[in-house]
Every structure is written in C-alpha cells, then in structure tokens.
C-alpha cells in the first residue's frame, strides 16, 4: 500500500479527522494545509506494516472508527502513521480557524458538570480501548506471527 500520502485519500482523511478531533467539517483551507503537511511526515521514509495499514484504513471510515483505531494505536503504534497523521491534523486545527478557539478554550463550568464531562470522556476512552482490543488484537497477534517481510 502506498496511498497514505495520496491526494486521492487525504481530503477524506482530513474530513474524518476534523470531525473526530474537533467536531467540525473540514474547510478547503484545512484540507490544503493537511495535504501540504504530509511532505515532512516521518512515515514517508518507510512502508507501514499490516497493522499500521489496517488502523489507517479503519480510521478513514468515520469519526467513531477513527476513535477506535486511535485508541488502539496510542498503545500499540504510538509512533505509527495513524498517530502521525492525527498529530498533523490536530496541529493544523489548533493553528487556524474555525477550531483553534475551541481547542484552546478552558473547560469552564460548575464542578459537577466538569467532572461529569471528564467521567464521560474517560468512559468513552475505556470503551473505545476495549472495543479496539477486540477488533485489532487478533490482527496484531496474527501480524506478529507472520515471517518477517510478509507482514505488509
């Protein structure tokens, strides 16, 4: 697979990652900045293995799939291509409108409300990780058992 930096898939990725990370629709500027940023993506130096490719493919399907793939990638592939792309997209979102104000805002409100939001976030993260382990755990084991050079 060599399409991880292809202009054909990047707008779709940008759209999904924008909704996952900031809950907004990607603007043409965000797509353009996200595409430009791929020139220095460290993953361009190598070929993603089977697990990296599977995580990226699932993440492109939609925000909830991205959450699932991200939950697994942050433990199994913390420096992999999916995490690199999410870091790039978050950097673009944080640097430009319309999402930068929301990203840099404080979660202000009554303590019970803030705690409730935090509990919700923790709950979603835990459930995402459990679901991700169910989905990707077997694939990860399978990829690990394959002889070297055949994983991709």
């Amino acid at each position: 697979m060599t399409d991880f930096a292809s202009a054909a898939v990047l707008p779709r990725e940008c759209s999904v990652f924008s909704r996952y990370l900031a809950g907004i629709e990607a603007t043409p500027y965000l797509v353009e900045a996200y595409t430009r940023g791929h020139k220095y993506l460290p993953a361009r130096q190598g070929t993603p293995d089977a697990l990296d490719q599977a995580l990226l493919r699932l993440a492109r399907r939609g925000p909830w799939c991205a959450r699932l793939a991200d939950a697994y990638a942050r433990r199994a592939r913390p420096t992999g291509i999916l995490r690199q792309k999410l870091v790039l997209q978050l950097a673009v979102l944080e640097s430009s409108p319309p999402a930068h104000a929301w990203i840099n805002s404080a979660d202000i409100g009554p303590v019970p409300l803030v705690l409730a939001r935090a509990a919700w976030a923790v709950g979603v993260s835990v459930l995402s990780l459990v679901a991700a382990i169910v989905v990707f755990g077997p694939l990860h084991l399978l990829a690990g058992l394959r002889p070297a050079g055949r994983a991709a």
Binding site: A33, H38, K39, T79, Q84, V92, S95, S96
Partner: peptide, 24 residues
C-alpha cells in the same frame, strides 16, 4: 490565527516542517 491568510503555514511551516511528531 484568525487574520493571517495562511496561519498553519506561519505556525507550522509552509510544508509542516515545524510539526513535532511522536518519537521525534
């Protein structure tokens, strides 16, 4: 971030060279 024509280019570099990736 609101006024520059290319804020991501200014803060991250024209081709994202200023982004700090995991493991870098």
């Amino acid at each position: 971030k609101d006024t520059l024509p290319d804020p991501a280019g200014y803060f991250l570099g024209l081709e994202g060279e200023g982004v700090v990736y995991p493991a870098s």
